[in-house]
Design a protein around this nucleic acid. Structure first.
Lengths: 105, 105
DNA sequence: AGCATGGTTTTACAGGTTCTTCACACCCCG
DNA sequence: CGGGGTGTGAAGAACCTGTAAAACCATGCT
């Protein structure tokens, strides 16, 4: 989005600083693993758009996507948990059946 | 249509954004399944022309068309219903007996 | 090396949604 | 009328998603 000057991605209360490998939800830092962080970066960088599993997989894993690979789903679940812990009751990652996921604060 | 720059298809009040997996009728988003979305994309991309079931089937389903397969008809009905919900009283998908369908706002 | 710890990938299954096909009614046109 | 074309509801098949848990890996420490 407006990452040109600062490199920081923001969508609502969620902020990602790719150059620092840190992410925040509201005022608290999220404790993410490398994969979780990369996936969140990919999602926030595409906030508001429906993104296919294939695009997410290629971006984060850097390999060809196999339809049977559930890694994206598994990590979406992990991110949802940690976002829920940080900001209870709010939904950020929306499922679009048959298409993919959408990050929307 | 004029998809060269934006990738967006438009016909009257109906707009399809293939790269975002989203479609709009008037100002509201259409809640479509994968097949419905692909069929609408095929129809809007051929707006104003009569399109045979065979061409629609090959485009959307990617397989050889069997005369007994009613999938196109079933999904045209679904699309008509959702377009009617979004923009009541208007007709978009016209039947040409013995030939196929035509999308015309 | 052997072991512990934490992360990643794969598997399995339940639950839900969508898709295909069938059946029957209706319609169009000769 | 008659016969094939079309509209559409319904039901089971097929597919998709959420998630826990197992299996697999990588790293660091004793």
């Amino acid at each position: 989005m407006e990452a040109l000057t600062t490199g920081i991605l923001r969508a609502g209360d969620v902020e990602v600083r790719p150059d620092e490998f840190r992410a925040f939800a509201g005022d608290q830092a999220l404790n993410l693993t490398a994969r979780e962080f990369e996936l969140l970066t990919a999602l926030v960088g595409r906030a508001g758009r429906i993104v296919s599993r294939e695009e997410l997989y290629r971006t984060v894993w850097g390999e060809r996507y196999r339809k049977s690979d559930r890694s994206v789903d598994v990590y979406v679940a992990k991110l949802r948990h940690k976002l829920e812990d940080a900001l209870p009751g709010r939904r950020f990652i929306h499922t679009h059946f048959g298409f993919g996921y959408r990050f929307q604060p």
